[in-house]
Amino acid sequence: MDWLELKPEGLFCVPGAFYIDPLQPVAHAVITHGHSDHARPGHQHVTATPETLSIMRLRMGEDRAGESQQALEYGEVISVGAVRLWLAPAGHVLGSAQIVMEYQGQRAVVSGDYKRAPDPTCTPFEVVPCDLFVTEATFGLPVFRLPDPAHEIGKLLHDVRLFPERTHVVGCYALGKCQRLIALLRNAGYHEPLWLHGALLPMCSLYEGFGIQLGELKSATAAKKGEMRGGIVLAPPSAIADRWARRLPDPVVCLASGWMHVRQRAKARGVELPMVISDHADWDALLDTCQATGAKEIWVTHGREEALIHALGKLGIRGCSLRLIGYEEDDEQAEEDAMA
């Protein structure tokens, strides 16, 4: 498809003259979701879902989240130049969207990050039939067949019951993972107050503003040490292995991430209770989704693209690698590096 181009700033839609998740400030950016490697500050005009725009304003401040902002509900169609454009849910985090573009009878879908597993905190992924599908490949290896998140939450709650005198601290990314964990805990019948690192609270309030109930949340930073004993604390991964965590009584270090599926990665992080919970599509979901779109051509943006392209080839689908430098394969690592 020759009307989507890869430029140094990012993926460019020629007939619409806009970039998708650009890495540098541009005149017109269409943003898939609010994670900092996709939504960057300083663009002139920004098009995204109301949720994503709201997240961008919270994270980068009103003045840096785009000089003008255009909110698009899922399914609301607009014309940008010669392109028909609309957003479809991606199921990654609140407000996450696939960018659907039509031009001269061809349809291209840029999925951004996405997952197929159910998530009570965001609208589920919608398959949009298309000619070109642009996919991520974070977990693009057949060893990544991730377990049911309810099972992983069960592991945590079992541990909390077994060690009531300790404090379970779960490392999780501030946008998406944190709120999903809370919702999963509530669905599993855990209704105690949850203790949150200060960096996580504003995003939770934002989610609640969009009608997502998270139950009682308390500030771990303001808590007295003994208060949190026996409870569950959520914090950014970088805070857990650092001085902030010294306020926690006898902590058990847990980390919620798809990478926890591989022992060595969990070991290297010093995690005591790995929880395999991811907001990305696992191997089966990647293959199923690529097939379900009916696309004849698949572009793979970031992750382990060679294995996915190989497997797609076996299914008769042409894939090619679109190495976009700058999109992190690992949210937690990105955040840790950002704070370092």
Binding site: V262, R304, A307
Partner: peptide, 11 residues
């Protein structure tokens, strides 16, 4: 090939 890539990653 998928096995080889996976083994290489997992170790």
């Amino acid at each position: 090939e998928l096995f080889a890539w996976s083994y290489d990653y997992v170790g």
